[in-house]
Design a protein around this nucleic acid. Sequence first.
DNA 1: CTAGGATCCTGTCAGC
DNA 2: TGCTGACAGGATCCTA
Length: 282
Amino acid sequence: MPELPEVETIRRGLKDFILHKKIVGIDVLCEKSFIGAPILGTVKNLRRFGKALVIDLDNDKSLMIHLRMTGQLIYDGKERYAAGHPSDNFTDSLPNKQTRVIIKFEDGTLYFNDQRKFGFIKVIDTLEVENDDFIKKLAKEPWTMTPEEFYEKLQKHKTSPIKATILDQTIICGLGNIYADEALFKSKIHPATKSGQITKEEAKALLESAREVMDRSIASGGSTMATYVKADGTKGDYLEKFAQVFRREGQPCPRCKTKLEKIRIAGRGTHICPNCQRRKDD
DNA sequence: CTAGGATCCTGTCAGC
DNA sequence: TGCTGACAGGATCCTA
């Protein structure tokens, strides 16, 4: 579920609670959700690689966390900070039925919840993080990739629909189902367009759109998933305020008022304006 | 090498 | 009410 902006939101938010804090215990409730032997240590740094969060400890070990579709991280101390898969139970008593791993700090507890068990926490040597099988394959993020580079990559996947191509983290890193749909809408490209049919101008526009939709989401604290449960409570609200097409089928297109549609591309639910995003003749 | 579909797992919702 | 199939903000594995 969480895409790059959500994981970045989690990284920034969690930092305030666990940086320089000591892990005093780890309980693994679901074996599948924790790879390696639980370890203790003090948090030295929080990094993000695409959709993966890495917590570096002061003993040359790191915890790599990938939330996949339904992962959540909920810090419960004097205040509660929750981010990840959206749900109503951010304020539930914890642990709950979906709690897979409990990381205990001196002054609080970090719960890793994950309904579908696709996500995981993995112990890695800090020096080996960038050699991890998942992390080493990640492509550049839209902010560091040039339009020329992006265009060239598309030429290697000529027959595959553009949406499938930009969801591939080894081609361009960070987009998931929400921001892929939003970026394609913004640049007026039909998601089924063969990647080889995308012009240089379109590639440039798509890359810029990807940056813009994700920048905007990060600035607003992710898409309805980050919640500060505290006095000055703020809440991520990208979907509510800024999403133009995602989960808005049936509603009028914000640009032309045509009814938005939901279709299926590359096995994923896909949201489009059939008027703004025209298919090219193949 | 690429492309497409099945698969991991739990839960919810629409339709009968 | 109970059952069934489809689907879900991700990524990998298997096959052609």
